[in-house]
């Protein structure tokens, strides 16, 4: 747990790691000690060496000793574990709120100014407070390097806070099993200097577009698919994941199931619109129902137009 790379990555690391070292140390001591006794007795008192066993039924003194010592030890472990953890519940009042949205199988992060990213940016040396929202099923937000984890429960807001003390990039995993692509539900947290973070989150909501220097519809489309986590399930290169690929989608005739019956439809603008806003009304044959949520009230009309242009672009290749 005490790798150089994660040392002081967050303010919790040292407390969690010292609790771990304390518990691990005692555990290892007892494991080695008792195993040594075990092996020593087996060798010393094997039948060929000791033909006659001595009749001993027990000893109250020993029973009391080996009840009291473990009791003291486990209570001290409890205390260490509790005192090393309780800070995780005291969210500082000035912590910067970042809304964290999980859906199968991606995380997105929304900052105070409305900027949305698929990578979590946090300022170095400042506390951040993540409001965790799960849209579909249970997920769990886990940054191993920071020693933090919190389940994300649909219909219930949970929170997690931390303060990172070291610039760098760290892995984010989903730790609660959430279906087919659970192990691909990953992201990165980038700890950046506080002034950069401020610049990024203080400018207006076109920040994302500016950051990505939109030059054509293709880049706008890519940004939107990243912003909403579309790429967790759909690809732009024809690979089939959980949902169909965007490649060559426009103008194609598709076989879809509506209420279990097969229909043929042409993938036009109306079809794309339905697929985004009412994803479960018609399901392309060969894919499962119920995996995609509606993006109504999320994807704006302008973004929809940009997506459409992007899909046309992918279909002209």
């Amino acid at each position: 747990m005490n790798e150089d790379t994660t040392q002081n990555a967050s303010s919790f690391v040292s407390q969690v790691d010292s609790a771990f070292v304390f518990i691990f140390g005692i555990s290892l001591f007892f494991l080695v000690g008792i195993t040594a006794f075990l092996v020593y007795y087996i060798i010393k008192y094997r039948k060929s060496k000791n033909a006659e066993a001595t009749h001993i039924e027990g000893s109250n003194t020993l029973e009391i000793i080996w009840t009291i010592i473990p009791t003291i030890l486990v209570l001290s472990m409890f205390y260490y574990g509790w005192s090393g953890w309780k800070f995780q519940r005291d969210i500082p009042e000035d912590a910067i709120p970042i809304k964290t949205i999980a859906r199968m199988w991606s995380f997105t992060f929304q900052y105070e100014n409305g900027l949305i990213t698929d990578t979590l940016y946090v300022p170095k040396g400042k506390a951040v407070n993540l409001d965790l929202v799960a849209l579909d099923v249970l997920h769990s937000f886990y940054i191993p390097a920071f020693r933090v984890k919190q389940d994300m429960v649909p219909g219930k807001q949970t929170n997690i806070w931390f303060e990172s003390e070291k610039e760098g990039e760290y892995e984010i995993y989903c730790a609660e099993y959430c279906g087919l692509r659970h192990s691909y539900m990953r992201s990165l947290v980038k700890v950046i200097p506080a002034n950069e973070f401020e610049a990024m989150t203080k400018i207006d909501s076109s920040a994302l577009a500016i950051n990505n220097e939109v030059v054509d519809s293709r880049q706008a489309g890519i940004s939107i698919t990243r912003k909403y986590g579309c790429n967790a399930c759909h690809t732009a290169d024809g690979t089939k994941l959980v949902g169909p690929s965007y490649k060559n989608i426009m103008g194609r005739t598709r076989v879809v199931l509506i209420d279990g019956k097969e229909h043929e439809v042409e993938a036009d603008e109306a079809y794309i619109r339905r697929s985004i806003y009412e994803p479960n009304a018609e399901i392309v044959k060969g894919f499962e129902k119920g995996l995609m949520l509606s993006y109504k009230d999320q994807v704006t009309e302008e973004e929809f137009k940009q997506l459409l242009e992007y899909f046309y672009y992918l279909s002209e290749q």
Binding site: F12, Q15, V16, F20, S27, V74, M77, S140, A175
Partner: peptide, 29 residues
């Protein structure tokens, strides 16, 4: 005898999971 050994490892590793600070990191791993 080997039961004692593996059971001790199982039980002692449970201590790290019972403590809150370490559980948060190790839970679901």
């Amino acid at each position: 005898a080997s039961f004692l050994f593996v059971f001790m490892i199982g039980g002692l590793s449970g201590l790290a999971l019972g403590a809150l600070a370490t559980n948060v990191h190790l839970h679901d791993t």
